[in-house]
Design a protein around this nucleic acid. Sequence first.
DNA 1: TGTTAGCACTCTCCCTTCATGAGTGCTAAT
DNA 2: ATTAGCACTCATGAAGGGAGAGTGCTAACA
Lengths: 345, 345
Amino acid sequence: MQLGKRKLQILHAVINDYISTGEPVGSRTIAKKYDMGISPATIRNEMSDLEEMGYLQQPHTSAGRIPSDKAYRFYVDKLMKTRKPTAEEAERIERIYQQKTAEIEKIIEQVANILSDITSYTSVVLGPRLNKVLIRRIELIPIDGQYALLLVVTSAGIIKDTLIRIPDNIDAGYLERMSNMLTKYYRNKTFAEVNIKQAADIQMEMKKRKEFISSVLDAFANNIASKNQSDIYLGGTANIFNFPEYQNIIKAREFLNLIENRDILYKLLNQYETEEDIMIVIGTENIYNEMQDCSVVIGTYSIGDKVLGTMGLIGPTRMEYSKAVSIMRYVGESVSRYLTLLFKE
Amino acid sequence: MQLGKRKLQILHAVINDYISTGEPVGSRTIAKKYDMGISPATIRNEMSDLEEMGYLQQPHTSAGRIPSDKAYRFYVDKLMKTRKPTAEEAERIERIYQQKTAEIEKIIEQVANILSDITSYTSVVLGPRLNKVLIRRIELIPIDGQYALLLVVTSAGIIKDTLIRIPDNIDAGYLERMSNMLTKYYRNKTFAEVNIKQAADIQMEMKKRKEFISSVLDAFANNIASKNQSDIYLGGTANIFNFPEYQNIIKAREFLNLIENRDILYKLLNQYETEEDIMIVIGTENIYNEMQDCSVVIGTYSIGDKVLGTMGLIGPTRMEYSKAVSIMRYVGESVSRYLTLLFKE
DNA sequence: TGTTAGCACTCTCCCTTCATGAGTGCTAAT
DNA sequence: ATTAGCACTCATGAAGGGAGAGTGCTAACA
């Protein structure tokens, strides 16, 4: 069977209506709302076909139809028109930068908030991925004899600082020499490369002060590892309650458990990072069972043409994809532009 | 009317039973479970008295009784026995320190998690309050010409770094002089004092490089202000769903909105910071209407004898106070001991 | 041959009714 | 002072029934 023009119109109508109401859509409703000059009976026939083709479903015999995941996929690929953000939305987004911080984490936090505020979905933003970022400088700054601060300045302006305990026999001069040595070898490398490419000088040192050097290298490793858990910014976690399909406590609870499980969020968002502009994962398309009730709109932000991190909007499968996509796209472009301005060499 | 020994026994029984079941407690239940050699009828009379005295309430005529906030208050002040954590709980708590980080924030994050995990309530932990902490060193470290990193090392090992944009006409030498000047004047002062006590030299500089100096001072101010929002660590936000009184979606939603509203949490926890050891705020005792359905157990953690920050456990008013208090106390002592060891001069 | 009106049928939703059971308060006996 | 007995209250859950929305099918129509 073919998806003729009329079927397409009807499918579109059902999707639109269901997205905005959350109620199964009946033939009469469509006939009334979308004046396409055919009777409910005809629409019923067409809907029956659409059901057979897998685009529509009936929750029970005497209810209207709801779109299937396949229908949403078709919708976002073929039917949906994205819109520009309204002037007001755009203005709110641009206002993020007013605080004039040069700290990328602060900006990311704002991004998570604005995404969820404007869309009323739940937002997840991953902090900049350290393996994408180049090391600029490494400094070991002595503090009160017992500690040193390991400071790593990166190309994205991200500064990772880690307090390291230092042995007694190490003085400020030594720390400075080490700083220079580390900077020399690891400048313009990524964090991931730090453990692998160990320069000869450092291996020499390693022999002499094993404990100290290895705690420095550990600190690098920890910075990468710990990102998985802690650098996830969430916005609007309670927004899910706005949707009637989450009025039931069990679903709401499942959703919140999901959101608390940062591991899944992290994996999900990372997975799609390399692909196109905006990605949409609809319901059962998601490889994580826990999320097959939801849809996720995924975007990225960059410095120059280097993708730094990933953002997601999580909502019910009947989410307003056009809104979510357009806001996500705008925010992504806007943040990238701003970060590039700030940090591009 | 007096709270005689028998009334007391009965009150205790009702509270215990209600805390563990969440169901209104009837006279027969008490007669059966707590063998005190009197009949249900007698218990009914006593309960009726206790109701008149404001300790018990009836949800409706033909239901059992539930304790009032006044009863819980009496219970936590007079009846409750706190217990030591079990060996297993203690071990889990001590395991926090295994990661051997010297970063206080990382530890705090773990504290929030362990509190909620063990108690199954929602935990809130405030990061170290900067106004309690003394400045040790201030450094302005030049980065790539355009930026400087303002680094403040404090007595609690907390390092606040803020990236500051610097004007073209400022060089590394100048930054070093400024670092020394700032350190000289603000060493052993708190963040709050930075804006007030402006030393003469700095005011001189202020005239020459107004923009730069004020952005440095702004950074101090921001560090204090931004704490309110961002340095709150939450654990187990979805735990509230475990309690039957939060099975209804409206209450659950209210609770989550509350938790998302970090401002209230911050104010609440700060308010009690100066008072004794462990504080308990029961239901309507709370000055924030939004929280009058909950109880909060509040504790602190310190370095030496300086209170650094506050922790809270939020649960239903029928929470297991004895468990919450003993875990809170143990965690507070344990964390304080560890931090003191790490950072005490 | 595609479209439509008509109609019987299905199923959810909501309202009412009713029985059950837990628990009370009161009274009178111990 | 305590208790057994009993009538009464109220929440809860099951059962029944009507309303309404929506369908699928059939037969008539253009």
